[in-house]
Amino acid sequence: MSAPVSLLMLDGDGIGPEIVAATRTVLEAADSRFGLNLAFAGAVVGFDALKASGSTIPDAVIAAALDADGIVLGPVSHNAYPPVAEGGLNPSGTLRKRLDLFANIRPAATRPGVTPPCGKPFDLVVVRENTEGFYADRNMASGPGEIMPEPDIALALRKITRRACRRIAESAFRLAATRPARHVTAVHKANVLRLSDGLFLEECRAVAKDYPDIAYDEVLVDAMAALLVRDAGRYDVVVTTNMYGDILSDLAAELSGSLGLAASLNAGEHHGMAQAQHGSAPDIAGKDIANPASLIGSAAMLLDWLGERKGNIALRQAAAAIESALEQVLADPAARTPDLGGSAGTQQMARAVAARL
């Protein structure tokens, strides 16, 4: 048997516990089918952790994440948390920063059986820088990236570093080299943000020279939003900074059929974390109607990432099998959750994916 692969499961808030449980159902089926030797552990984050320990992500959870081979994080209700001084840290942002999960990989593709709003098939991946930009909870060594010098003045600081730009560009080109279209598009606003987005483009262009067999172009972020709506199929790998990537990946996911289908992997040099692209949807929590597809797909991405790092073909085979099984379920209206026009519950849909493994 292969060495154990430790996965830390973090439920989060709202629908988080339901879709994390659904994802575990699929992972356990994959473990049984492919002999992965997965070792599951759990820890509490979010409101339950705040109530128990005074912090939405205690130090012990961060230590457990550092020790795990991979993390599966359920959505969190961080907008509703108290101030940071009162323990209301964003678990997602905290883990991205502490584990240096600099690459947020967000695929968006149309699927058989799910009619896309755009009306056209496409298959693209947004490669989003994950550790700086305008994100105030992670772009400073000390203190937030937003300040209010006077009650009626708020200032936000955007940090862009050459190192972060270089490594996200390298991630995008390495990914493009594995895909049939072999095309990278850098999205920016350098016509206005000449220094910060200019630095980002400098590094993208430098990396592009190392990959002469991969097509490379650049698009302004506002034009990119319009062009995705018009014809997302013209794009393959889209690389961009943090905030642009967050917005464009949600747009691409909706164009593919639903944000509920949007898988997401946070990856660094040494750590990987699966995370649904959507939020915690507290209004439907506990009703067994939440769509688990996003987190299941994210877990498949995590297994593939772990398999590549460890040279473990079984992990990569399991990842591909989960993706295939998920696609089969999404093509079957009876097996889908209500948001996709079906009648299945969260756990029922997860069991359907597991059965198809």
Rank of each mutant, 00 (worst) to 15 (best):
A109L: 07
P116V: 11
V61N: 10
R98V: 15
D67V: 01
A85H: 05
S77Q: 13
A64M: 10
N90L: 05
D100I: 11
L66P: 00
K120N: 00
I71Q: 09
L89A: 15
K97F: 01
C118E: 01
D100C: 14
A68W: 06
L95G: 08
A80W: 02
D67Q: 14
D67S: 15
N79I: 10
T110G: 00
E86F: 01
L99R: 04
P116F: 09
G70C: 09
I105Q: 01
G113Q: 01
V61M: 11
A64S: 15
I71E: 09
S77M: 08
D69R: 04
A103K: 13
V61R: 05
P107V: 00
D67L: 07
A65Q: 05
T110S: 00
P107L: 00
A65L: 07
N79V: 12
P83F: 05
V76F: 08
G113K: 05
N79Y: 09
P75I: 04
T115S: 12
G88N: 04
V84K: 15
F102I: 10
A63F: 04
T115V: 14
P91N: 14
P117V: 00
C118A: 15
A80E: 13
P117Y: 04
A85N: 12
G70I: 06
A80P: 02
G119W: 00
V114R: 12
D123H: 03
V72Q: 12
T115H: 08
I105P: 00
R98C: 08
L73H: 06
P91Q: 11
G70V: 04
L66H: 13
G70K: 10
A85F: 07
V61S: 07
D59Y: 03
G87I: 05
P112C: 03
D100N: 15
A108Q: 06
V61H: 03
R98K: 15
G87S: 09
A80D: 15
V76Q: 12
A108K: 02
P117F: 01
A85Q: 12
A65V: 03
R111E: 00
D67E: 14
A60E: 14
D67N: 13
N104W: 12
N90G: 15
A108R: 03
A60I: 06
V84S: 15
K97R: 15
P75K: 07
R111Y: 02
R96W: 11
H78D: 14
A63W: 02
V61T: 13
G119P: 02
A64R: 14
A60R: 15
A80H: 10
D59G: 13
T94W: 10
S92Y: 13
P75D: 05
N79F: 09
T110I: 01
G74V: 08
N90V: 05
R111V: 08
G70E: 08
G74C: 11
L99N: 07
R98G: 10
L95M: 09
S77V: 01
P82R: 06
L95K: 08
A63E: 13
L66M: 12
V84W: 13
L99H: 03
G93N: 15
A109P: 02
T94F: 08
D67W: 05
T115F: 04
G87W: 08
L101I: 05
C118P: 11
N90F: 05
P107Y: 00
P121W: 04
I62K: 09
V114S: 12
G87D: 06
P121G: 06
G74W: 04
C118N: 07
L73R: 04
R96L: 13
P112V: 03
R96M: 13
V72C: 12
